[in-house]
Design a protein around this nucleic acid. Structure first.
Lengths: 204, 204
DNA sequence: GTCTATAAAAGGATAGAC
DNA sequence: GTCTATCCTTTTATAGAC
């Protein structure tokens, strides 16, 4: 939020319209012209609010980081009793990805093709925090005796994050595979996958 | 290979130089100018070999699909007896990703931001074939009694692919996390992750 | 804060010589 | 097959009025 508040109304409007465009097609894939058209405004007005295209992109990116960094309290307690603990943790994370998909896409872009610059360490920080939250949840479950003691929390967290990012990125393609025809939502997808890995991780 | 043979020497040279550029920065991120400079040649020569930029990109992309589609026989039997079967399957897949990283990146780009066009079904086909190979390997292990009967081969394959794609994409960032400081290669990384999931999937 | 007009550069693509 | 020169369009960015 820090930097978002310091922006004017008009600037924030531009930001929110540019975000999904950059998220979908990346920095070079979107022109100021196009953003101006999307805002029903002029190019010059965008350059009034931001010194140049890169600054606009950076503002969009930082605001995506802010958004992704804030917690989702509302989703936290939507747990069904049929699910095991790992499934709950995994499902929450997946819902988070989909509910903030533009921000996630923007951050993912930097992960994948970011030059090793300032953005990259910002990304590392965000991811590490996000990752740490999941590790903590797993450790808590271990203390409660609901996940086996001998599993490595960090590696388990990696598995959860990896599966969810994979679903997030390939959903539209996986849907076409016969093997998965019976699954009609990412949630159901994730449920089956976590069920598979959980078999070995839970206390029996 | 099919389409690669039909190209002239000069065209193939351009292709091979353009590939890593497109892989790293995407279609809109690379200009014909830049490709020409990288080939030490002229823009006009590129347009002599390819009707337009899109055709060049498509040729690069198809050739990436060809390369990724061909099997890696040489890596197939580098198995250490300390590893369990899932680790071997996973490690092979990961080595494949890294040894063909430009092609993988190009294909991943289409997965992530491809418009739903011809490329997309090509990508789906490639991924499905790749995926099918892993499923078959797991089923074979189940027949041999080395992996439990009650695990879903498709879901297990998804987990392997997801973990490996995640490593491939985030390697340079994960390296910065303290939790993983002791891991100095993707292989070691993958080994630990698969060890974690394998605990529940192998016959005991 | 927002606009129109315009500059300056880069990008995709073509013509025509060698 | 490869080049130089050129064209047209798009893009980033600025100047200056309202």
């Amino acid at each position: 939020m820090a930097q978002l508040d310091s922006l004017s109304e008009g600037a924030r409007r531009i930001l929110s319209i540019a975000a999904p465009l950059f998220a979908e097609r990346g920095y070079t894939g979107v022109s100021i012209n196009e953003i101006a058209a999307a805002t029903d405004g002029s190019k010059a007005n965008i350059f009034h609010h931001f010194p140049n295209k890169e600054a606009l992109y950076l503002a969009v990116f930082k605001s995506a980081c802010d958004e992704f960094g804030t917690e989702l309290k509302d989703l936290a307690d939507e747990r069904s009793d049929n699910d095991n603990r790992l499934q709950i943790i995994g499902k929450q994370h997946l819902l988070r990805l989909f509910s903030k998909s533009d921000s996630v896409r923007l951050i993912l872009r930097e992960v994948i093709d970011g030059e090793s610059g300032i953005n990259r360490s910002l990304v590392a920080e965000i991811l590490h925090h996000n990752f740490g939250t999941i590790v903590e949840q797993i450790e808590e479950e271990q203390r409660q005796g609901r996940i086996r003691d001998d599993v490595n929390p960090a590696m388990t967290a990696v598995t959860i994050v990896a599966l969810n990012m994979f679903f997030f990125q390939t959903m539209t393609i996986l849907e076409q595979f016969q093997e998965f025809r019976h699954l009609d939502s990412p949630q159901q997808f994730a449920r089956e996958a976590f069920e598979a890995i959980a078999k070995g991780l839970l206390v029996k």
